[in-house]
Simulated assay, not measured.
Amino acid sequence: MKVQWSILNRPLTKREHKLVIAFTICLIFYGLYFIFYPKVIGLSNLRKQLQEVTNSKVTYRRLYENHNNYKAAVVRSSDIIKKVPNNKDVSGFLIDIEKWADEQGVTIISIYSQSIMTENIAETTVNFIPFEIIIKGSYDSLLGFIGQMENYSRILKIEGLKLNASTDSSVKLQFPWELTVKVNLYYLPSQIKYEH
């Protein structure tokens, strides 16, 4: 059966007929796309929102069930602030060094501090002051001094140790060893404030 169009005034060939059908099918799909595409996008957005709500619900449930962990975190945070104070407190550190030296029978030869430096630890910027401390004493007393430094209440890091035999013959019997200690004393920059 041949379809007649008034514009053409002739029947359509098979090829033209197929083109008209293909064009009609394309128009139908094009229309369906504009009808359903916004709904598909809306459904996708709703799925994302539902996933976010589900994730939030899981987080809140975890926080609710583990509320005691919050108290432990506050205690840990408070402890860290004591170990890494908000100011340099170099004088307190020097007093402690002198106390350790007296307790261990060690003689302090020199304490040299360098310029303040910064370091990133666990995504937190902290300042530190490098010190070079030279002390003299017996081997056991020097070990005792280092032990007290390692157990210090503030966070510090011993970067290096250098042990030499004492060169001064007049004090060699009393202080046979000379120890050079390189240590970093940490503190928080003044702009970081913590509430606890």
Score class of each variant (00 low, 15 high):
H196Q: 05
K157P: 00
M117A: 13
R15C: 06
S170T: 14
Q114K: 12
I129W: 00
Q148D: 10
M149N: 06
V106W: 07
S110P: 03
F131R: 02
V84E: 07
R62A: 14
P176A: 01
R47Q: 09
V53M: 05
Q104A: 14
N9I: 01
N127S: 14
S153H: 12
A72E: 10
K136Y: 00
H17Y: 11
W177P: 00
A72P: 01
K83W: 02
E159N: 14
R15Y: 05
L156R: 05
T54K: 13
Q4P: 04
E159M: 10
L156S: 04
D140F: 11
I146H: 04
T24R: 05
N66Y: 06
W100L: 08
R47P: 00
V126M: 12
S169L: 11
A73C: 02
S44V: 07
V3G: 03
Y37S: 11
L46Q: 15
G147F: 05
E159A: 12
L185Q: 08
N68M: 10
T59I: 13
G147H: 07
N164M: 08
Q51K: 15
M1I: 12
R10M: 00
S6F: 08
L142H: 06
G42I: 06
T54C: 01
M149T: 10
I80C: 03
V183E: 01
V53H: 04
P189Q: 03
E195Y: 04
F93N: 02
L12T: 14
T107V: 14
K71F: 05
N184D: 12
K193V: 13
T180R: 05
N68T: 09
F93Y: 15
S166R: 08
E119Y: 08
P38K: 02
D89P: 00
K136G: 10
N45I: 08
D96Q: 14
I116M: 09
G31W: 13
E159S: 13
W177D: 12
F23M: 04
F34K: 09
F34Y: 14
K57I: 07
L43V: 04
K172Q: 13
N55M: 03
N151K: 07
I25M: 11
I7Y: 09
E52R: 13
K18N: 10
A22P: 06
L188K: 08
E52K: 14
N9L: 02
F29K: 01
